[in-house]
């Protein structure tokens, strides 16, 4: 769409301007950008750098340190499977191999239709009711392979494509 990049850049700048005065502003800015765009747009890096008097390399270095931040939108849904011990004790290893097999992807990869990206996560604080997964802002407990399949089915059938 024409003009998108301009709007996008103005939006990025507005977020930066709103937060740059906070002490330690970088993480709040990155979070706000990701909440808005679902990832950190490439053209945001230089703008952040300028506002915070840091180099683009420094900003990149911070983004890449944190698992939570993404620099591209790989798919519509991000599905995170808890790999940590309490979920392992409830069958998380079987769940993760089932997930990889049925989706045909490894961790950090997306399905061919770009509907789902599979990521690992280390504990979601739901350790009495594992295995636990997270899809967007929603956390699901006691996820056996059957429940996993039904969650994935819902994601597949209710996909809204925004052009």
């Amino acid at each position: 769409m024409n003009g998108t990049s301009v709007t996008n850049e103005q939006q990025i700048q507005a977020i930066i301007d709103q937060l740059k005065h906070k002490p330690g502003a970088l993480l709040p800015i990155l979070h706000q950008l990701q909440n808005t765009f679902e990832y950190i747009p490439a053209n945001a890096i230089a703008l952040i750098g300028r506002a915070l008097h840091q180099t683009s390399a420094e900003i990149h270095g911070v983004i890449s340190f944190y698992r939570h931040f993404h620099t591209s939108k790989d798919s519509t849904h991000r599905v995170e499977i808890c790999r940590a011990e309490a979920c392992q004790a409830r069958g998380a290893r079987a769940l993760e191999s089932h997930a990889k097999k049925t989706l045909g992807v490894d961790y950090h990869q997306s399905t061919a239709d770009r509907n789902i990206t599979l990521d690992p996560v280390y504990c979601l604080g739901n350790c009495s009711c594992g295995p636990t997964i997270r899809v967007g802002e929603h956390i699901y407990g006691r996820v056996d392979t059957e429940k996993f399949d039904s969650i994935i089915r819902q994601l597949t059938t209710t996909t809204v494509h925004i052009q």
């Binding site: 330690g24 970088l26 990155l30 915070l52 944190y66 698992r67 939570h68 931040f69 996560v121």
Partner: peptide, 19 residues
């Protein structure tokens, strides 16, 4: 935070808070 276990260690946490 942003998904880094080490940021629970207090000095790492402070670095993270500083951006």
């Amino acid at each position: 935070g942003a998904g880094a276990y080490i940021c629970g260690e207090e000095t790492s946490l402070l670095e993270s808070l500083e951006g």
